[in-house]
Amino acid sequence: MSGLSIGGVAHLRPATCTEALTAVISLVACGILDEPLPAVEPLENAGKVHEALESRTAPAKTVLSVAD
């Protein structure tokens, strides 16, 4: 599985979506599915990250790091 989005259908089949999400969460909890670690980019790369998100070439999870 490379992604899961139910935002557009959850209101149409809430019971089915609840069942599916419960199954996915159980698989993650058991270690069968792994949640990918985020790619961390410095804030100064925000433009590059935004372009990657728009072109759908960014890693599954991308976060910007703000210096302390």
Rank of each mutant, 00 (worst) to 15 (best):
H11L: 13
E35P: 01
T18L: 07
E54F: 10
E54A: 10
R13W: 08
G7V: 12
A46R: 01
S55L: 14
E44V: 00
G7S: 11
A52V: 00
C30D: 14
K61D: 06
T18D: 07
L33P: 00
L21I: 10
G47T: 01
E51W: 01
V28P: 00
T62I: 14
S55T: 15
T22N: 04
A23P: 00
A67W: 11
A23F: 15
L64G: 10
L4S: 14
P36N: 07
H50R: 14
H11C: 04
T16L: 06
L4Q: 09
A39V: 05
A29V: 11
E41M: 10
I6H: 02
P59F: 04
V9F: 11
P38G: 01
P36L: 02
D34Q: 15
A23S: 09
V24I: 07
T18R: 01
G31M: 15
V24S: 04
P14K: 04
T57M: 03
T22W: 00
L21D: 00
A52I: 03
M1P: 11
V49Q: 01
E54R: 15
I25L: 09
P14G: 06
I6S: 01
T57L: 08
G47H: 01
I25T: 13
E41R: 14
L37M: 08
I32G: 03
L27W: 05
E51S: 12
A15D: 05
V63D: 08
